[in-house]
């Protein structure tokens, strides 16, 4: 007669909770309460985190950035109404799969650039014009956005690209031809450049 008579119920079915979770995300979407939906995607450059607002894709993050840390920052800067909800990211995930399978050279998904502004945003917007398989130097990008001496700031803007892979900051390299740094690690940058060159 000792002990908690509810001990048997400590383990609830994961399947039930998964089903309830799906039901919650669907209801949240319908009610306009799903401010940020996210999912992960396995790719040749590691597991990517994809997050979208109702406006569009708002964040792509590499493993090395720490997905939990990225989500915590999104809760802080955008909204804490964040749920794992793959449906909103189906198109983006599908296109990224196609990109890595060499069946796609540019992305056609709505994006939400609200995580970037000012000079960095003008750099990010210029990056969208660098075509698949081509490269620009930090100096060329600086000149293109009208601040030819702001090479270091261009590097910082690329490092803070909220949508790496989809917005191709990996196509910006050093003037000497070396790849330079990358938010996903130098290895990931080389892998993307080699993929596009092959």
């Amino acid at each position: 007669m000792t002990g908690n008579i509810f001990d048997f119920s400590e383990r609830d079915g994961d399947a039930t909770l998964e089903r309830l979770h799906d039901r919650l995300t669907a209801a949240a979407e319908t009610a306009g309460l799903l401010d940020v939906a996210y999912r992960t995607l396995e790719t040749p450059v590691g597991t990517l985190l994809l997050a979208a607002t109702p406006v569009g894709l708002v964040r792509v993050a590499f493993d090395v950035e720490g997905h939990d840390a990225v989500l915590n920052r999104l809760a802080d800067t955008l909204s804490p109404r964040i749920l794992r909800s793959p449906a909103r990211l189906d198109t983006a995930a599908h296109q990224i799969d196609e990109y890595f399978a060499k069946r796609r050279t540019d992305f056609d998904v709505p994006v939400d650039l609200s995580l970037t502004d000012g000079f960095r945003r003008s750099v990010i917007q210029h990056l969208c014009d660098i075509s698949y398989g081509t490269r620009e130097s930090y100096a060329q990008v600086a000149a293109a956005v009208g601040h030819p001496r702001a090479m270091r700031a261009v590097g910082t803007a690329c490092a803070h690209n909220p949508l790496p892979v989809v917005i191709p900051c990996h196509r910006v390299v050093r003037s000497d031809g070396s790849t330079g740094q990358y938010v996903g690690g130098a290895g990931a940058k080389s892998a993307l450049l080699e993929l596009e060159a092959a």
Binding site: F6, S9, D12, T16, L17, L20, H21, L24, V36, Y38, L71, N72, L74, A75, D76, P80, R81, I82, L83, R84
Partner: peptide, 19 residues
């Protein structure tokens, strides 16, 4: 302390609330 994503709340408390 900063607010956590709501997903964490569901993960952490979903089973208890169901019981």
């Amino acid at each position: 302390m900063k607010v956590r994503p709501f997903e964490d709340v569901v993960t952490r408390h979903g089973a208890t609330v169901l019981r």
